[in-house]
């Protein structure tokens, strides 16, 4: 495998954007390219992630080409997935030896539609979607099962929220933040019991961009390149009754294959839109109690669907680059109840 490093990262997240997708994306891509020290024309491959259903129109990603430097023509691809998978495709492309570097970006405007309702269209179209179960209700079913199996309480979930909101205070890109203890949060009413508002993601609009570079050259582009040491992703069956919702088997496989347990982990950025999912993931990834979880506030505090997974990878890389740790685990997920999971192990030079 070729060594590939994350050499730059930029993001934009806001509760509601009045700019269109191109206008949101353009400065983010520009910032990532500028801080990579590379000329746009030097970057070998471009890959992006987004979803038409968020935009409510087909080919939502085509317009984005206006803002990302696609002239003269570029080697480019797009996944209808979270941008973390676009990064994976770019990493694969670098492994083939055809290119040495890539620009990866993702964007999403969750505020355009009713996100929890839009996500009902991800379920079984013949037998489940007709009921229009919104995403929060489906997550509530998973939370109830998980608490029962793991002996966890609503207080445990509230502790996750309180810590995330507190950490988000130092993250200018988080859209939910604050200093409220679990006691206070538990006094709030339920949204979809056992979940309260603070257990559910703070939806946001935004974009994320990352530049990766292979080999020695990465060392010349930044002070401390952050190397991708393990990268794997897996999927579980879709039917909510066909798998154990209290676990994330696909995350377990991905973590094992990415080598999470091979060495000490300093920090982890987990894409858990709901509080209980963070607890499921800690277990699935085998993270020790002393691992710092979601210092950014995580996806719970800025749920820009389609870019939040890539954002986790960027957030983790940024902290390693800044010397806050030497080894990090970044995670992305997709689908209801953590159906599809990706694990990326990052190490500082």
């Amino acid at each position: 495998m070729r060594d590939v490093a994350i050499v730059s990262f930029a993001q934009s997240n806001a509760a509601r954007e009045d700019r269109n997708e191109v206008e949101i994306l353009l400065p983010v891509v520009k910032a990532a390219v500028a801080s990579s020290q590379l000329e746009r024309s030097e970057i070998g491959f471009t890959c992006s992630g987004s979803s038409d259903f968020l935009q409510g129109q087909p080919f939502a990603f085509v317009m984005a080409l206006d803002g990302v430097g696609a002239w003269p023509p570029i080697k480019e691809s797009h996944v209808e997935m979270d941008g973390a998978w676009a990064l994976y495709e770019a990493w694969v492309k670098i492994q083939t030896g055809e290119v040495d570097s890539a620009l990866v970006y993702a964007f999403g405007k969750t505020s355009s539609g009713d996100l929890a309702e839009v996500q009902a269209l991800q379920l079984d179209p013949y037998c489940v979607t007709q009921l229009w179960p919104d995403a929060d209700s489906v997550a509530g079913i998973q939370a109830r099962l998980y608490m029962e199996r793991a002996g966890r309480s609503e207080r445990d979930l509230a502790e996750v929220a309180a810590r995330s909101l507190r950490d988000a205070q130092s993250n200018p890109h988080a859209v939910a933040k604050g200093d409220r203890d679990a006691e206070k949060l538990l006094a709030e009413p339920y949204r979809t019991s056992p979940l309260r508002d603070h257990d559910c993601p703070a939806n946001s609009d935004g974009a994320t961009a990352i530049v990766v570079m292979a080999g020695e050259r990465a060392k010349t582009l930044c002070e401390r390149p952050v190397w991708i040491r393990g990268f794997d992703h897996r999927i579980d069956p879709p039917a909510l009754g066909a798998r154990d919702l209290t676990r994330a088997p696909s995350a377990e496989i991905a973590a094992a294959r990415a080598g999470v347990g091979d060495d000490k982990v300093d920090l982890a950025e987990l894409s858990a839109p709901y509080t209980h999912q963070e607890l499921i993931l800690r277990e699935a990834l085998g993270l020790a109690d002393d691992v710092r979880i979601n210092p950014s506030g995580g996806t719970l505090c800025a749920h820009t669907m389609m870019s939040c997974g890539l954002n986790r990878i960027g957030d983790a890389a940024q902290r390693i680059a800044a010397g806050e740790g030497d080894r990090a685990v970044a995670h992305a997920s997709q689908g209801h109840c953590l159906q599809q999971n990706m694990v990326c192990v990052l190490e500082g030079e």
């Binding site: 954007e17 700019r19 269109n20 191109v22 409510g56 355009s112 539609g113 009713d114």
Partner: peptide
């Protein structure tokens, strides 16, 4: 065949240039 009507409402932003 079964029919599942889908109706979703979106609130788009025109953006600066189109505005």
């Amino acid at each position: 065949s079964i029919v599942t009507p889908v109706r979703l409402e979106y609130d788009h932003s025109a953006g600066a240039a189109a505005t």
